[in-house]
Nucleic acid binder design. Sequence first.
DNA 1: GAGAAATCGAACATAGTGTTCAGAAACGTA
DNA 2: TACGTTTCTGAACACTATGTTCGATTTCTC
Lengths: 194, 194
Amino acid sequence: MPQKVTDRRIQRTRQLLQDSLVALILEKGYESITVQDIIDRANVGRSTFYAHFQDKEDLFLSGFENLQSQFEQHLLGQSPSEINPWTLSLVMFQHAQEYQRVYKALVGERGGHTMLSHLQRYMSAHIGEHLKSHLPVRRKEQIPLEILTLYIYSTLTSLLTWWLDHDMPYPAEQINDMFRQLTQPTVESILQQA
Amino acid sequence: MPQKVTDRRIQRTRQLLQDSLVALILEKGYESITVQDIIDRANVGRSTFYAHFQDKEDLFLSGFENLQSQFEQHLLGQSPSEINPWTLSLVMFQHAQEYQRVYKALVGERGGHTMLSHLQRYMSAHIGEHLKSHLPVRRKEQIPLEILTLYIYSTLTSLLTWWLDHDMPYPAEQINDMFRQLTQPTVESILQQA
DNA sequence: GAGAAATCGAACATAGTGTTCAGAAACGTA
DNA sequence: TACGTTTCTGAACACTATGTTCGATTTCTC
């Protein structure tokens, strides 16, 4: 049973802190930021910071979780006819295009590597799901599913961070097409091994 | 003009510190290690540590550089008939197999991500070199060379760290074969676009 | 054993973390 | 407007880790 306005106040403080962190990451990189930097930028008292978040990493992750649930909303709104790794990736690149700043801070090179393991769990689940459903019943187990999933995931994230760190020199559709050209032939050839 | 024996003493201390760091990384991960942990383990005085290395990261990198120059020795010793990304990768997997502990500590998941950018510069140079020499004079610039290089590099490193973190469930030749199966079709199809 | 080089470790200054708490400010209600 | 509640403030504090300094000590060389 949420209170009406005090909640809004809390929300505003959290947002302020998250925004400050994003700005600071883009300026000087995650590692070198101190809690003092963050609260100075946000004009928030020290104890307030610790009332909301355990530490810097907690703040970072809360922003990341925001982004993730927002992405899920976005995904539902788009609802591509079929969900496979390449429609999923397209939605992701488009979403990143729309929220450049936040993406670049949280997922890009300067953002530390904190979020990689979280993103990995999330995306790998989707990718693995798709692969499993397309798997021939009996295939030569030359390349295990786990590795194939890892392969797709690592290609996707390396493209994403490259794209963000180079300030998106291509539109989302084009970088996604590169992703498809890079991975689809391999995936199909492997899935079709009977 | 290096001195004879005192040099050996210095070398011993450096080695001790590097070994301690490796052991500690495998135990508790790079991030949570303090300088105190390292010198306690190595039985080395605090000021001695700082006489040899600037900080924890410097020590880490010195170990990484050791490994790298050792790898180059190894590469010369093997001298595959042709150096392409897949012979290079084989030598690398074999080298990693031989020096499991160090590789796992410095390149694996627990090793922080410090070395990724260094490894990237090194491997990408080799990979890009090979690709450039096999490039058709005029090709459709759908996928720039930089991205193709990144693709190969990221697949290689994600396989390598996965392999290390899972305690090498396959021999080097087999994991390298997976690497080839994953990347070769894509690379060839793209290089042959006239 | 004398001299040089390397190591030791205690002491220190500095910087960042996370907690506490009394007072101030903002808000909701009536 | 006045009241109580919630949230925010910021100074003070204890704590942990960093990196430096320097005189004492060990180790090696000849």
